[in-house]
Design a protein around this nucleic acid. Structure first.
Length: 274
DNA sequence: AAATGACACAACCGCCGGTCA
DNA sequence: ATGACCGGCGGTTGTGTCATT
C-alpha cells in the first residue's frame, strides 16, 4: 500500500510561523476546537479567504504548532533546577519516551524536553559521568552503563518499565502536586508512596505509564480564555484586552474573526457547514 | 565591524498504531 | 481482512541568535 502524503505539498507553506498565522490558528481552535487537524487549514482558509494570506499549512503543521507552542497551558521560560532533575530521573526510568516524560511535567512539551535534553542535560550527565570516572568505583560505572543500556528501548519493548513503575508514579505525584513554582519540592526525596506526596489525593494512579489525564478542553472557559489572551497578547501581537470584547453570544462571530474582518473593513460572512 | 563557530529551539519528516469503512 | 486515513511519536534538520576571534 502506498501511503498518501499527509497533505498536498503544492502551495502549502513551510518554515517558521508568522504572528498572523498563529492568530488564525488560535482563533480557529478556540472557536471551533480541533476535531480534525487535516480539515482545519481548509476551513480556516475559507474563513479568511478574503484576507491577504490564508492558513496555508498542512494539518500536521497546525497540530505541532498548537501542541508545542500555542497551547494555553504551556509553561514558558527556562527550566528550573527541579524540572531538570526530574527530566534526568524520568529519562533514567523511561528512556527517550519524551511524550511520557512531558506528561509528568505539566506545562512542558515533549519537544521542549527533548531539546533541553539534547542541548543541556545530556552534556551535563556526560560531565557527571566523567567526574564519576575520576571519583567513583568501577561498580558505579557498570551500574550507570547498565541503566543506560536498559533504557534504550523502542515502542513495545517496555517490560522492564513495569518493574520500575512505582518509582515513576512517585515522581509523577511529586511533579503533579507541584505549584507553578516548584522550587519548594525536593525531587530527590520522592518516595514510592504517592499518597504521602499528594496528601492522599491520587493524581495518576493507573499502573500504566501510558494512562495519563486527557487534555482538558474545559480550560476554554470564557474567563480562562480571556486571561490567556491577555497574558499572551505580546506573543500573539494584539492587545486583546483593549481591542477585543469577547462574547459568548453564539450569534456573534468569533473574536479573532471579528478582529480580522474589522481590520480589513470586510463585512461579516455567513459560514458554511463543514 | 565583519566573519565564524557554537548553541538553542522551532519545525519538519518518516514511521507507527489505532480506527473505520 | 484489507486499505485508507488520522493523530501521535521520536529523530533530525534548519535557522536565528549570541559569543568569540
Amino acid at each position: 500500500m502506498v501511503r498518501a502524503p499527509c497533505c498536498e505539498k503544492m502551495g502549502l507553506k513551510k518554515g517558521p510561523w508568522t504572528p498572523e498565522e498563529d492568530q488564525i490558528l488560535i482563533g480557529y481552535i478556540q472557536h471551533f476546537g480541533h476535531g480534525n487537524w487535516r480539515a482545519l487549514p481548509k476551513q480556516a482558509v475559507y474563513l479568511i479567504s478574503y484576507l491577504p494570506s490564508g492558513l496555508l499549512r498542512c494539518g500536521k503543521s497546525c497540530r505541532l504548532r498548537w501542541t508545542n507552542y500555542l497551547r494555553p497551558d504551556i509553561k514558558r521560560g527556562n527550566f528550573s533546577k527541579e524540572e531538570e532533575e526530574a527530566i534526568i530521573k524520568l529519562h533514567e526510568l523511561l528512556g527517550n519516551r519524551w511524550s511520557a516524560i512531558a506528561a509528568r511535567l505539566p506545562g512542558r512539551t515533549d519537544n521542549e524536553i527533548k531539546n533541553v535534553w539534547h542541548t543541556h542535560l545530556k552534556k551535563r550527565l556526560k560531565a557527571d559521568v566523567v567526574k564519576t570516572t575520576n571519583d567513583g568505583t568501577q561498580e558505579d560505572l557498570i551500574e550507570i552503563s547498565q541503566i543506560n543500556s536498559n533504557n534504550v528501548t523502542t515502542r513495545g519493548q517496555e517490560e522492564h518499565m513495569n518493574i520500575q513503575e512505582p518509582h515513576i508514579e512517585a515522581y509523577s505525584s511529586v511533579i503533579t502536586a507541584s505549584p507553578q513554582n516548584s522550587s519548594e519540592f525536593d525531587f530527590s526525596s520522592a518516595t514510592t508512596d504517592s499518597s504521602v506526596l499528594t496528601g492522599g489525593k491520587e493524581e495518576y494512579t493507573d499502573s500504566s505509564p501510558e494512562t495519563l489525564p486527557e487534555f482538558d478542553e474545559g480550560i476554554w472557559s470564557e474567563e480562562l480564555r480571556r486571561e490567556n489572551l491577555v497574558a499572551n497578547s505580546d506573543i500573539w501581537g494584539f492587545d486583546f484586552d483593549q481591542s477585543v470584547k469577547l462574547s459568548v453570544d453564539e450569534n456573534n462571530m468569533d473574536f479573532w474573526f471579528n478582529l480580522l474582518l474589522k481590520a480589513e473593513n470586510i463585512p461579516t460572512l455567513e459560514l458554511p457547514e463543514f
